[in-house]
Design a protein around this nucleic acid. Structure first.
Ligand SMILES: [Mn+2]
Ligand SMILES: [Mn+2]
Ligand SMILES: [Zn+2]
Ligand SMILES: [Zn+2]
Lengths: 141, 141
DNA sequence: GTGATAATTAGAATAATTCTAACAAAATAG
DNA sequence: CTATTTTGTTAGAATTATTCTAATTATCAC
């Protein structure tokens, strides 16, 4: 996989500014760590990597910087459901809609075969036993 | 939404037995609570509801029973990523493949427009700002 | 420069989940 | 049957990811 070209410091600053945030050495180095090795690291892993270059950084700052990068849409959280696990007795293949206003989670029926169709588009060698689809947004009252 | 017909105690026992598990009053009551009100409750919420009928039950048992029901495929975990959040600098719309053997997470490219197509299938009144697709399985070495 | 605002830091607090060890119930063997 | 083993429940402690707090530092606006 070809890594995406490194964003310039100025472009990073601009992206942060667009969200009312400043650029800082911590944010810059954390962003460069994420682009350097695209293995979806955890906050702790980022912490370990950044400490090698900036030994005084704190874990709280890593969390803060990652939040800033997510806020200005330079970084995605892969598992962004931070709350407790929820349980569903609906055995039909279905997706979930998470209403960010109310916190409620609703079942969403899917066209038959859609999950299998998605699985069939995986690259050769990828065997998925499960597919999870989660929508996040707002459901009209 | 029409709730699915309540499973008989015998059918529940059979499903549990298929996975080498026994039926117990705790497992039965927790399963009935999940089917009674299908609002994707958390373990804590299940705990609160079951205590009304079985005041001596413990939270650990609620977690244990939910795990048993998930194991025998009567219940789904909606947010089953229990580990730490992971971070991804890939801004293209894409899905993730989580290799359960190695714990690695890979980017999966999606056909253009697929996410929008999925969003457009939501019932009227549901406005999704985001869709997350996660495959779980095994990737060939 | 000076005060206001934003960011970083260390450490404490929180909260979901898991673990441990003891007890109880159910199945199995003799 | 009765003993033994296995499975399940329980209370409470431990773990762990994340968030909060309060103090310090850096940047910005004037
Ligand atoms: Mn979860
Ligand atoms: Mn997470
Ligand atoms: Zn559901
Ligand atoms: Zn990704």
């Amino acid at each position: 996989m070809v890594p995406t070209a490194q964003m310039t410091s100025e472009a990073l600053s601009q992206k942060l500014a667009d969200s009312g945030l400043r650029n800082t050495p911590q944010r810059e180095i954390i962003y460069s760590i994420l682009t350097k090795k695209r293995d979806h690291p955890t906050a702790d892993e980022v912490f370990a990597r950044v400490k090698a270059e900036m030994p005084t950084i704190s874990l709280a700052t890593v969390y803060n910087c990652l939040e800033a990068l997510v806020q200005c849409n330079l970084v995605r959280q892969v598992n962004f459901e931070r709350g407790p696990t929820r349980y569903c007795p609906n055995l039909h293949p279905h997706a979930h809609f998470h209403d960010e206003t109310t916190g409620s989670t609703y079942d969403i029926d899917l066209p038959p075969g859609l999950l299998e169709q998605l699985k069939s588009q995986l690259p050769v060698g990828y065997q998925a036993s499960d597919v999870e689809i989660t929508f996040r947004g707002h459901a009209a009252s």
